[in-house]
Amino acid sequence: MLTANNLECSRGDHKLFAGMNFSVKAGELMLVSGPNGSGKTSLLRLLCGLSVPDDGEICWDGINIRELGGDYRSVMTYLGHLGGIKDDLTAIENLRISCALAGCEIDEEQATDALRRMGLTGRETLPAKVLSQGQRRRVALARLLVTRTKLWILDEPLTALDVAAIELIKGMLEHNLSQGGMIVMTTHQELNVAAAATHQLVLS
């Protein structure tokens, strides 16, 4: 269970939010929405432990994620605006390396398989620089097919994706939730994901 107690976050002199409380339990989805600059990305970066809140704490199963460190990072997957895709590497190399970094090494076959399921058949050995924006996004998202982490923190995962890919992602999200996973994500698009409970967090 992911809980936030009395979170406060500011950027420079500008206070983004304060006194924020929520909890996300197994099988639940939390959608974060709000206008540009309202602190959606800042919140997600707090939740994954990249930055430290000005006040309050974030707990995983009741323990502060600062104390958990690597143990927390091994149950969590964060996908930000930047996919971490290297122009000079092929789709397979990109996927294998990002998985290895996340602590689950996969071989070439598994990588090819995941990329094919993401609709990238025939593109597996092309360098990422010749892929389109949407295809690069698919390479980044392919990691979600392979990882076995419980908590997914996704920042605008649907940007640049077409209708078919959005359906695909929806299926992946639902699969994770049905396995007892949890998802915190931001999106501008309407998305009906079947979940045990869907929380809406609106930032202003």
Partner: peptide
């Protein structure tokens, strides 16, 4: 810097393996 620009560095910081090793 290139890892910083394309987001790989974020993933390294969030990796369960030790950052010092990376």
């Amino acid at each position: 810097s290139s890892d910083y620009v394309d987001g790989t560095l974020e993933q390294m910081l969030l990796s369960p393996v030790s950052l010092s090793g990376l």
